[in-house]
């Protein structure tokens, strides 16, 4: 209790116009990146699978806005593009990686589900459902031992919330009092299985009590709500308060994977979310109505991001694919 007594206001949380503009750029970059990958995938030029994050931008942007590149780490999921962008991974190598090109983040060998950039504290997208939370226990333990105030953030979905790895990681984080944040991005479906059916708890956040940590639900369509909740959880973790479970309720605008017919979703679900809940629309309305940013500023970001995405696709298509000589390189990490 004393840790919060007399501290300065904690709810203005430093959202200066510059930071708001940066947050908008992050969300817009994710949206345009994913919309473009959606289009490009349909042409057949992208190998493998892609799982798109469009609609969920406020979660990655609201949480990663509090993270440093040097001391904080995140672990992502198969739906990882948004987390990568929000953590600062460069967009052009990301796009090249998805196209399987040698200029990609992982030299074209990982693809969408394995984009990683350790220099940015991005441990990787992860094709294993529930693969991220145990990794974060490791980086959070390292941060605790080093005493640098770093935190580890594990993003996972409602499907992964039912995995043993996630349960073990939350238990370990609590037992070791780690600076770890568990972010359950509940978009309502584990592939085609509804969370209402497959998650035994009323809310994923309710499970936090069983691990001895706080559990919070936040509106994933509202950047400001996510940002505030994440700020408090991360501050608490940095100060030695231990782990937190944040359930972000949101929806994805595309299928589980590209090509998913989504027959398991109500017909109007996505249209309603796009029309009435969209995080980018809400953000724009909020910041312009309160005179913190202008439409002209936001439009300029839109144009800059659109150009960046165009360039990233053009450069990715023009780049070479890995050759036979690259087959056995980058297989193991040297320590």
């Amino acid at each position: 209790m004393t840790q919060t007594l007399n501290r300065p206001t904690d709810v203005d949380d430093g959202l200066t116009p510059e930071r708001l503009l940066r947050a908008y750029r992050t969300m817009k970059s994710i949206r345009m990146f994913e919309d473009r990958v959606h289009d490009e995938f349909a042409t057949g030029d992208i190998p493998g699978f892609v799982h798109l994050y469009a609609g969920e931008e406020a979660s990655a942007a609201g949480i990663c806005a509090h993270l440093d590149q040097d001391r904080d780490t995140i672990a992502s999921t198969h739906r990882g593009h948004g987390h990568c962008i929000a953590k600062g991974v460069d967009i052009k190598p990301m796009m090249a990686e998805i196209f399987g090109k040698i200029t990609g983040s992982c030299r074209g060998k990982g693809g969408s589900m394995h984009i990683a950039d350790l220099s940015k504290g991005m441990l990787g997208a992860n094709g294993i459902v529930g693969g991220g939370p145990p990794l974060i226990c490791g980086t959070a333990l390292a941060a605790k031992i080093k005493g640098d105030g770093g935190v580890g953030v594990a993003f996972f979905g409602d499907g992964a919330s039912n995995q043993g790895t996630t349960a073990e990681a939350m238990n370990l984080a609590s037992v070791w009092n780690l600076p770890a944040i568990f972010v359950a991005e509940n978009n309502g479906y584990a592939e085609a299985t509804a969370a209402k059916w497959s998650v035994s708890a009323d809310n994923i956040a309710d499970r936090a009590a069983g691990y001895g940590m706080p559990g919070v639900i936040v509106d994933g369509f509202d950047f400001f709500a996510v940002h505030e909740v994440a700020g408090e959880a991360i501050r608490r973790a940095r100060e030695g308060g231990g782990p937190t479970l944040i359930e972000v309720k949101l929806t994805r605008y595309y299928g589980h994977f590209e090509g998913d017919q989504q027959t398991y979703r109500p017909r109007d679900e996505i249209g309603n979310a796009r029309e009435n809940l969209d995080c980018l629309k809400r953000f724009r309305a909020r910041v312009t109505e309160t005179d913190r940013l202008t439409d002209a500023q936001l439009d300029q970001v839109d144009a800059e991001v659109a150009q960046l995405i165009d360039e990233s696709v053009a450069e990715a298509k023009a780049a070479a694919t890995p050759g036979a000589a690259d087959l056995l390189t980058d297989v193991y990490v040297k320590y």
Binding site: T4, A205, D206, P214, G215, V216, V229, E232, T244
Partner: peptide
């Protein structure tokens, strides 16, 4: 109300969680 009792006060204070069961 199925949604009451799960806001940020679980982090910033010791507010209780009231299960739906």
């Amino acid at each position: 109300n199925p949604m009451s009792g799960r806001d940020i006060r679980r982090i910033v204070s010791q507010a209780s969680v009231f299960p739906n069961t």
